[in-house]
Design a protein around this nucleic acid. Sequence first.
DNA 1: GGTAGCTGTAACACAAAGAGTTACAACCAT
DNA 2: ATGGTTGTAACTCTTTGTGTTACAGCTACC
Lengths: 145, 145
Amino acid sequence: MQISSRFTIAVHILVCIETLKDSSKVTSDILASSVNTNPVVIRRLLQQLKSAGIIGVVRGSGGAYIDKPLDEISLFDIYSAVECVDNGGLFHFHENPNPECPIGKNIHSILDERLNTIQTAMETEMKAVTVQDIMNDADKLIKLT
Amino acid sequence: MQISSRFTIAVHILVCIETLKDSSKVTSDILASSVNTNPVVIRRLLQQLKSAGIIGVVRGSGGAYIDKPLDEISLFDIYSAVECVDNGGLFHFHENPNPECPIGKNIHSILDERLNTIQTAMETEMKAVTVQDIMNDADKLIKLT
DNA sequence: GGTAGCTGTAACACAAAGAGTTACAACCAT
DNA sequence: ATGGTTGTAACTCTTTGTGTTACAGCTACC
């Protein structure tokens, strides 16, 4: 199964906020229009990013702003903020394998270390990319079009 | 979102087939009992593993067997066999971002390369682990208990 | 101090996917 | 032929993601 679009939308939002910050107040309506979704979906995401300390949102008058140096926000920070993986595990085990079976009883301990290595590899790559990197990519690409 | 339990169940199944191969015919009932799920769930998985050329299943008289050297079956092979990621992408994008917005129009090209790097890192780790490795881990752990 | 615009959040609807279950035809070895 | 098994359709249920409406609460500004 895929990682939900919340993650890519969250990155999209951050790029938008950074790009538009000098020209206009960045409201959930504006962001929703760029992503092409409902403003409430955006507000929910903004709340998650805010809880993670990545952005701030202004009540009343409105607008979102980035609350951290761009090169200190990694894709992993964003992923963690919006992807609610309760137990932190990327891989899902079937519950209650048969304790009478030597494999069933031990399946978790057999696989945990290997799976953890895989998950860590992915997270390490995510930590290596910052919003600053994405902004640089974006600036280049937008200039071309 | 998590990778579905089909993946860990599939590995579980393979370990079971290999472990039990000399002592009994390995039917979907036996496997279902070890995993603690319904035999039909197992049969569906067996079909996917069979389509991937990893195992064979005997019609009529019953039983599943591994159809490849254990060290030539990687976790990625299993993952690909059972996780139906249609487009091959681990990350899900929101459909139809606003083409009027420079970010919306380019979000795919902005992110694709970075996301691909992350996905590749994960897949590379998955390719590095084979069922033979898992069997070695399993043998060690089962001896301990 | 009222008003317009925005956020925060609850409540509901809907679709898709994962997972379980029943049922049964097809198959094969004995 | 029969018993045990696979292959698969059809249905249900639950969970999650996503979209939508509605509205209270807040802030700036006239």
